[in-house]
Design a protein around this nucleic acid. Structure first.
Lengths: 305, 305
DNA sequence: GTTCGTGATAGTCAAAGCCTATCACATTGA
DNA sequence: TCAATGTGATAGGCTTTGACTATCACGAAC
C-alpha cells in the first residue's frame, strides 16, 4: 500500500469512473485500474463493485476511502510543516537563559525580536547554566544565552556582548559617595554572593580573586534580587551585572552603585546552539538582533576614579 | 514520500540511531540512511541532526515524526478495517490496563475472552493510567481498561463495573474483629498508600478525604502487593480493591478484611478506545464479555455495621 | 596513534509503478 | 439484430525506485 494507491482510491470514490479518476490523478486508466486491483489483493477485500458503465465502492471501500482522505490530509500537513521550516521565521524556537540575566535582558530583547520576526514563536526557558547546557545537548533546547567560557565543542558560540559589573553598597557605606573606583579598592571588602550553581557566583569569585576581596561568610543568596534586597537592608555589599541596574529595573532605595574604571570586571555573554542544528543561519540572524541592543545599557560613564 | 519513509523517520525518532532504527524497520542501515536523506531532499528541510555518535531530530523532524505516527496509525486502522471485513473476530487487539487492576481482573476475564473470541490475539500491556492514556492517544494501544473519570473527548468510554474497596488491617488490630464498618470509622486512622503516579493512590486519598482518615507518613509503597505485605507485617492498614482480595488471590496471613456499609467507597472501571477506531462494534462486544464476570467478585456481604 | 562505532556513498539488482496497445464485454442506437 | 461505442482488464515492456552488500569517511574512545 502506498500514498498513491490511497490517492487513486479517493479519486475513484469521488468520480466513480476509472478513466476520469485516472485523468484527475495524472495517470493512465490501466495504471489506476491495476493499482486499485493490487490494493484490493494486498488488503484481501474488495473495495470496488465493478458494474458495466458504473463503478460503486463497497462499504469497506467507502470506509477505507474516508480514512485515506484523512491520511492524505495529514501528508499535506507534513508538507506544510516542511514548507514553513524552509521559511523559519514562522516556527518555534526554544531558548534557554540563566536567571541572573534573563529577567534583565529579555525586556530589551523581546520587543526587537517580535518586530524583526513577527511570525516567530519564542519559548523561553529560564534555567541555571549547567541545565541549559544539558538541555542543549539532549535537544530539549534549540539555543541558549550563557556567559562564557563554555567548553563544549559540539556547540557553536556566537558572542553577543560584554556586560560589566557594578558594585552595589548601602547608602551609608564608606564607599557610597563614590561614583567610580578601581578594582583594587575592593581589597579587604567582603561581598555577598549567590549560592553554588549560579554562574554569577563564579564570576564574582573571579573578581574577588583579582581584587583581593572576599566572600561574606554565613550568607548565600538564592537570587540576584535577594542580593539587592540585602544591600538595601544594610546587610552588606555585592557585585551586580549592569543590565540588572539599568532601566526598566527600578533603582533600589538605600543602594548606591559604583562603577569600575577600566579594565572593569565584566562577563561575556554569548548565544550557543548545536553545531549540527539546521537552524544555524536563522540563529545567526537572531543573535544579530540581540547584539543590537543599545550600548548605553552596558556603557559606564566616563569613569575616572 | 511514502509510508516506508514515514516508518523509518518514526523509528529514527524513537531509537535516535540509524542502525537500530534500520534493524527495527527490517532494512539495512544504508537503506534507512538513504531513504531518510531522500525524504529530506523531497521536503526541502533537514529532519535529522547528525552528530558523531548521536542522532537528534530537528524540531521540524520531531513534528513531522509526530504526524507520521498519526498517519501510520491510520494505515493500521485501514488494514484493521480490511482484516475485520475478512474475518471480524480474528486479529490482534492491544489492550492496556493499570497495575492495581490487571493482575486481579485478567484471570477472570481472559478465559471468557478466549472462549468468546477464540481467534482473537490479545496483547496485554500493563502501564500506569497516564501512560495507558498516552499510548491510546498515539495509537500504540487499541483500547484500555481504566478507572473513571477520564477527561478525554477523543476517547469513547464504556462503563464496565464498580469495584468497591475493603479495609485491610493486621490480625491484631483494634478493628480486626469487625466484618463491616462505616467510612466514618476510619477517622483518626492513617493509611498506608501507594506512591505518586498510581491512580489507586488518588482514589485512596479521596476516601481519606471523605472519611477523615490520613496517610501514614514516612512510607510509600511501590505496588499493591507491597501494601498487602506491610499490613501482614503489622506495619499499618490500607485500602484494597475488592478484586485484589477475592479468589483466586490467596488470603494473606495476619490480614483481616473489613467491608464498608453502603455507600461503600469504590472505583468505577471502564474500557476506553478511540472514538475514531473502526473497531467500535467489536470493542463493544469485548466490553460486554468483561462486564459479564460474576457480580459476587464485587459484591459485599450483607453489611450492617 | 589505533581501534571502533556510526552514518554516508557506490555499484548493483529485483521489484514496482507506469506506459501503450489491445482485448473483452455490456450498453446503446440505428 | 447488429454494429458502434464506452469502459475496465490484460499483456508486454520500460523506467524508476527501494533494497542489498561492500566500503569509505570521520569522530570518539581508549
Amino acid at each position: 500500500m502506498n500514498l498513491r494507491d490511497l490517492q487513486y482510491l479517493v479519486a475513484l470514490a469521488e468520480y466513480r469512473h476509472f478513466g476520469r479518476a485516472a485523468e484527475a490523478s495524472f495517470v493512465s486508466q490501466p495504471t489506476l485500474s491495476t493499482q486499485i486491483r493490487k490494493l484490493e489483493d494486498e488488503l484481501g477485500v474488495a473495495l470496488v463493485e465493478r458494474t458495466p458503465r458504473k463503478v460503486l465502492l463497497t462499504e469497506t471501500g467507502r470506509e477505507i476511502a474516508r480514512r485515506a482522505r484523512g491520511v492524505l490530509s495529514q501528508i499535506d500537513e507534513i508538507k506544510s510543516i516542511a514548507q514553513r521550516t524552509r521559511d523559519p521565521e514562522s516556527g518555534t524556537i526554544r531558548l534557554g537563559i540563566f536567571p541572573t540575566l534573563g529577567p534583565y535582558l529579555l525586556p530589551h530583547v523581546i520587543p526587537r525580536l517580535r518586530e524583526r520576526f513577527p511570525r516567530l514563536e519564542l519559548l523561553l526557558r529560564e534555567e541555571k547554566t549547567e541545565q541549559v547546557l544539558h538541555m542543549l545537548r539532549e535537544g530539549t533546547l534549540d539555543a541558549g544565552i550563557l556567559a562564557l567560557p563554555v567548553h563544549d565543542e559540539s556547540l557553536h558560540t556566537e558572542f553577543l556582548f560584554e556586560e560589566p559589573f557594578v558594585l552595589a553598597v548601602p547608602g551609608g557605606h564608606a564607599l557610597a559617595g563614590r561614583r567610580c573606583m578601581r578594582m583594587d579598592d575592593l581589597a579587604e571588602q567582603n561581598l555577598l554572593l549567590l549560592e553554588d550553581g549560579h554562574c554569577l557566583r563564579d564570576q564574582a569569585l573571579e573578581v574577588c580573586h583579582l581584587s583581593g576581596a572576599g566572600e561574606k561568610t554565613g550568607f548565600r543568596a538564592t537570587s540576584l534580587e535577594t542580593l539587592r534586597q540585602m544591600v538595601s537592608a544594610n546587610v552588606g555589599i555585592t557585585l551586580l551585572p549592569a543590565l540588572a541596574v539599568k532601566p526598566p529595573v527600578a533603582q533600589s532605595p538605600n543602594v548606591s552603585l559604583i562603577e569600575f574604571a577600566a579594565p572593569a570586571p565584566s562577563r561575556r555573554i554569548a548565544m550557543l546552539w548545536r553545531k549540527s542544528s539546521a537552524m544555524t543561519p536563522f540563529f545567526e540572524a537572531l543573535a544579530e538582533v540581540i547584539r543590537d541592543i543599545p550600548e548605553e545599557l552596558f556603557a559606564t560613564g566616563d569613569c575616572q576614579p
